[in-house]
Nucleic acid binder design. Structure first.
Lengths: 160, 160
DNA sequence: TATTCTAAGTTCCGTTTAGGAACTTGTAAA
DNA sequence: TTTACAAGTTCCTAAACGGAACTTAGAATA
């Protein structure tokens, strides 16, 4: 199976990875959250090849994660800005931040700390149940087929 | 810059992507959460080439995300099981699930639904503040250098 | 007016990584 | 004795990546 075919699977992780599962793509999105908007800025911050960057930005625009907003005409030039769909990737990135802080800091501690302005405290993001608001343990999650599960396939057995 | 060099950056997202940012790697981890433990099982479920699978499993073991547990000797054979480090990737995967459910369902609805056994309701994972417990909006998060921020670099300006 | 500069890409080409089919190894079952 | 099974390896072609040089359109400078 080719990598590009995974977006056809009835699986939201596969469909998400089909969009942001490429090398560099999430790093570009990360850079947007840190304030980058322009080609040269991304290129300088990330050290990605211009060729690759150009292609990835195009893909992110095609998928509606970034949109091009003119910041001058003659020559016409665009900022790349996160759309709502792009901003919605925040929990994915922050989940990675927490995992990296926990497991990949090599004893040096987190490179960045996050402050919740509502409560003023340093924090990380914790997954809570959208229904009851409690913190969720993976073992307390059951799954079953939803409306988008293909009728042609048998129901999956319920695991973790 | 080569992709493999990103793990040197003082950024937990980069360090996380250095481990799970490859094609197929997160799909394999996903399959683990769904109950797969053996080579043939992964290969059949994912359609990944045996070559690639073998290499990715080895990498996941090297990074301590999976561990090999013998399930028979003669011939000696192993299950691949999630370690604590691997289980900790759950929030990353579930954040992707929610994003995929929201933006990539093509109007068909979520392929899978998740139930929180504590409260019995269908849910998704919401990012909450680990300090105050409230739901977090990206605009309410400020960042500043942490203990792992290299002393040689100037402090970053605080963005989103 | 001619030259240089800036931003945002494209082109080209050699290197890596991926994908797929066939083959291997050790053992158990028919 | 042959077949089957599980878990890889080998080998070869195709696709993706990385880096340097080049392009384009206009602005600024000499």
């Amino acid at each position: 199976m080719k990598w590009d075919d995974i977006q056809e699977l009835p699986c939201s992780i596969a469909r998400t990875l089909a969009v942001i599962g490429d090398r560099w793509t999430l790093m570009i999105v990360r850079d947007c959250f840190l304030g980058s908007r322009r080609f040269e800025q991304f290129q300088k911050n990330l050290g990605i090849s211009r060729h690759r960057l150009s292609e990835r930005l195009g893909k992110l625009v095609d998928y509606g994660i970034l949109r091009k907003v003119p910041y001058q005409d003659s020559p016409l030039r665009y900022d790349y800005r996160l759309t709502r769909k792009g901003v919605d990737l925040y929990p994915v990135l922050m989940a990675m931040v927490h995992w990296g802080d926990t497991w990949m800091d090599e004893g040096r501690g987190a490179p960045l700390l996050y402050t919740h302005s509502r409560c003023g405290q340093t924090m990380h993001l914790e997954p809570h149940c959208s229904a009851c608001g409690e913190k969720v343990d993976p073992r307390d999650v059951g799954l079953h087929p939803g409306p988008g599960w293909p009728q042609s396939l048998p129901a999956e057995k319920s695991t973790s």
